[in-house]
Design a protein around this nucleic acid. Structure first.
Lengths: 344, 344
DNA sequence: TTGTACGCGTTATCAC
DNA sequence: GTGATAACGCGTACAA
């Protein structure tokens, strides 16, 4: 099965290459008869046009790329489906680009833009690099999705919830339930993204309720576990450590639902009951939170809506329509059975 | 920020294009001094080579593609990480290619092979197409990973557990626990992949224990829910329907852990206890199964090992080393707290 | 060690 | 309606 090119197809059909090209690309100016004949031999010989050559020659291409670091994060699952659907609906092609742990998202984006003649880019889960300088190399519109980190958020189009505020909302609720010893499971020390924002919200809520901030209640992911900050495993480990530390607490607030599940399991394993002995709260509003037993109190991020808004904003930017470039969505506090009010 | 090409870099440095090319690609025959100078101006002008042009010109490229339909399936999460690690370790590049629901994996593979000059391909989660004919268009080695479907498995390299056997193992165990009314939550009627295999295992186990096969206990995903066969939502819905049907049962075997979790939730919502009132079993051995409360009895597929074996086999094929082309791994029955023995 | 020229497979611009 | 032919941006003989 040898690589067959457009030239050979042309020769086989006794026509010129441009005619074959016209047949492939549904050009209007072509005889139906010859087109049919060409398509037949194409099928017969399994000719497949080389995309590299196409992209090289073409100047535009109607394709949108979605870049994700940590593609297997369940938080992204539903959003990916929405992106796929929305982009296809606009008759654009959708490229899902996985960014490896050691790679820089923007570098990948710059490359991909040239390679595929992109029309637009979505950075799902935000940007970890601080080199905003690089973003200037992008010549097509892009939207940062689900992260509202300071400097990026202030300068570039994004769609997200207000992580700080939503986190405060959650901890406010926990305080109102009478909890004063609320442990938080959060990202590593050097995190400057949503981990930091959610921690800030936690601190603000405590302050608002006159509860002193206690470092011992702040449990951070260990640095070597970079790949898995928001996992069940991590929630489990941190909770075990918390219990073993002897630190007193009545409630654990994990900054992701997966971590919350891990926390629950650690408590169950220690023979504790939830919420009778301890209250547990998460963040994200994943299906997992609703299906866990007990259902986990969480902040629901409107993932599908945010994904839709991301694409809408991106296309507005592409079409140069006026648009709100900084879109903040409301999260929703979902009260599950994993938390309860305790006597003051 | 205009598109700058290799020619302009050459002009800027007062050298020929080939010298620039040599600098970029770390060719040995180049003066250190001129190389440094070229790299400097490249950085200064943010020159990025166009990948399409490169791929077009190059004949080989040391890259492996992993194709996945339904990339957000949690079953694949860990495997993707292993693929990434193993492929990078061999100094190959790793391309994770998402295949859309309506696309044919093999078509995508054929295109990608030409476009990126692939060295090898992994079909993760198997092939849904039955057109083996198409596979002949692939000129590089490929491995089908985690699926052992008949005709494909008999003709092509694959790595998987024996789905039928493992499923039988699970249902055997459930029968030995004294269950005789075992419901199964499985894929839609038209599924001919692992859904069918696991159903066959179920039937065999029942037969071996002299238990009649009862269609009413077989609950299938509805066709319109194509995207989500193995989800918690589906497990929940099917279990609700099962309960409402009035059908008697003491145990539910779901062919994925996620579905099992959904089944648990439906029972909890109905005020039932697990495993006191009903036993629940899953399949896959996801972290979720272990972290759920109660921990779910499941079949652990050795995902990491299978991913490693997939890459090993693929490279053996690439290097034309002799290798076992059909690798079957053992699953492990993990007894959780979601099942119990009942009095005969 | 370096530069020139050609070709990779396509599409688009011309003439015919 | 159709067929040469010139790009697209890069790698690489080959010559220098």
């Amino acid at each position: 099965m040898e690589q067959i090119t457009i030239k050979e197809v042309a020769k086989l059909c006794g026509v010129g290459v441009s005619t074959v090209s016209r047949a492939i690309n549904n050009h209007p100016d072509i005889n139906e008869e010859t087109k049919r004949k060409i398509m037949d031999t194409i099928r017969q010989y399994n000719y497949v046009p080389n995309n590299s050559a196409r992209n090289l020659k073409r100047s535009d291409s109607k394709t949108i790329a979605v870049l994700i670091k940590g593609i297997s994060n369940p938080f992204f699952a539903e959003m990916i489906q929405v992106f796929e659907r929305e982009i296809n609906q606009k008759k654009y092609s959708f490229v899902l680009q996985h960014v490896e742990e050691f790679e820089d998202e923007v570098d990948v984006a710059v490359q991909l833009e040239k390679e595929k003649r992109l029309k637009g880019i979505v950075f799902l889960g935000g940007l970890s690099s601080h080199t905003n300088e690089k973003l200037k190399q992008l010549t097509v519109p892009f939207v940062i999705s689900t992260v509202d980190v300071g400097e990026l958020a202030s300068n570039y189009p994004f769609v997200a919830v207000d992580n700080e505020k939503e986190s405060r909302k959650m901890v406010d609720y926990l305080c109102e339930c009478g909890h004063r010893k609320i442990a938080i499971l959060t990202a590593a020390e050097d995190d400057e993204s949503i981990g930091l924002l959610r921690l800030k919200g936690y601190q603000q809520a405590l302050a608002a309720h006159g509860i002193p901030y206690d470092q011992n209640l702040v449990r951070r992911t260990h640095k070597d576990a970079c790949y898995s900050t928001y996992t069940m495993e991590n929630g489990y480990t941190l909770t075990k450590e918390l219990m073993e530390s002897g630190q007193e607490f009545s409630c654990i607030y994990a900054i992701s639902d997966s971590m919350a599940v891990g926390a629950c399991k650690a408590l169950f394993d220690a023979g504790k009951r939830i919420p009778e002995d301890f209250s547990i709260a998460g963040y994200d509003g994943l299906p997992l939170a609703a299906f866990y037993q007990p259902a986990i109190t969480t902040i629901r991020q409107p993932r599908a809506e945010m994904a839709e808004a991301t694409i809408r904003l991106l296309f507005d930017l592409i079409k140069k329509k006026p648009a709100e470039k900084r879109q903040i969505f409301e999260g929703e506090l979902i009260k599950g059975q994993s938390t309860r009010s305790i006597a003051g």
